[in-house]
Amino acid sequence: MFLAFYNKEHVGDTLLLLAKETNHSVETQSHGQITRIYDKQTQETLAYNIFHISEHLHLDKTGFVTLSCEQVDVVNRLLQESGFMPITVDNSPKFVIGHVDSCIEHPDSDHLHITQVSIGEDKPLQIVCGAANVNQGQLVVVAKIGAVMPSGLIIWPGELRGVESCGMLCSAKELALENYPSQKGILVLEQGQVGQSFFQ
Rank of each mutant, 00 (worst) to 15 (best):
S25F: 12
L67T: 04
G120T: 07
G162F: 07
S171M: 07
N133F: 07
T14H: 01
T35Q: 09
S82T: 12
G162L: 08
L153K: 14
I104W: 08
K20E: 13
H99W: 07
E44G: 02
Q138W: 02
Q196M: 10
Q193M: 06
C170N: 11
V134H: 00
P107M: 12
K173P: 00
E27T: 10
I145R: 00
N179M: 09
V163K: 14
I104H: 11
G195R: 05
Q191G: 05
V140L: 05
G146W: 01
G185H: 06
S165T: 15
K173T: 15
G185L: 09
S171E: 04
S25G: 02
V26D: 03
Q33T: 07
S25K: 12
K173Q: 15
N135M: 08
Q80S: 12
M85D: 13
G195I: 09
T115M: 10
I34T: 01
Y180I: 12
N91T: 07
R77N: 12
D90L: 09
C103K: 09
L59V: 14
C69G: 14
V188N: 01
L187A: 00
L187G: 02
F5W: 03
E44P: 01
Q43N: 13
Q196D: 14
L67M: 08
S54L: 13
Q183K: 09
V141A: 02
K173L: 10
Q116V: 08
V128D: 08
D13R: 01
D101K: 15
N49K: 10
I119R: 04
S30F: 02
V142D: 04
V72A: 01
G98E: 03
S25Q: 14
S68H: 09
I34W: 03
L160R: 13
M1W: 01
L15F: 06
A19W: 02
D122H: 12
S68W: 06
E27G: 12
E105D: 14
A143G: 12
N91Q: 04
I97K: 08
H56Y: 13
L160C: 01
E178C: 05
E178Q: 14
Y6H: 11
L160I: 02
K20Y: 06
K123R: 14
Q183W: 00
S30G: 04
Q191S: 15
D108G: 10
N133D: 04
K40N: 13
S118N: 15
A19N: 12
G63W: 01
L153W: 02
G32S: 11
S102N: 10
T45L: 07
L57R: 06
Q200V: 10
